[in-house]
């Protein structure tokens, strides 16, 4: 389960960044990948659609959102958490 969440999130982020999934590494930030605030909101929408979850994110205070977007790894971890909540 965990691997597939990770692969799917990386795929979504890569698509937004117009990169191959293999070019996205876990320690990168969205800024590193050239994803701006609009791209971020689109990525979150794609993640919500892919996993049928609600991501708590407000673009006005991205740093204070419950959803950690500080790196690709952080996003994957947060999505895994939300998916786990969904299935339990």
């Amino acid at each position: 389960m965990s691997t597939s969440v990770s692969d799917r999130v990386i795929e979504i982020i890569a698509e937004q960044a117009v990169l191959e999934p293999s070019d996205v590494s876990l320690d990168q930030t969205l800024e590193d990948l050239g994803i701006d605030s609009l791209g971020l909101v689109e990525s979150i929408f794609a993640i919500e659609e892919a996993f049928d979850i609600q991501v708590p994110f407000n673009a006005n205070e991205p740093q204070n959102s419950e959803f950690d977007i500080s790196s690709v790894a952080a996003i994957i971890k947060a999505v895994e958490g939300l998916v786990a909540e969904q299935t339990t």
Binding site: V41, I44, F45, F57, N58, A59, N60
Partner: peptide, 8 residues
Amino acid sequence: WEGLRVMS
């Protein structure tokens, strides 16, 4: 508007 994630 919700979709934009800018609403309080």
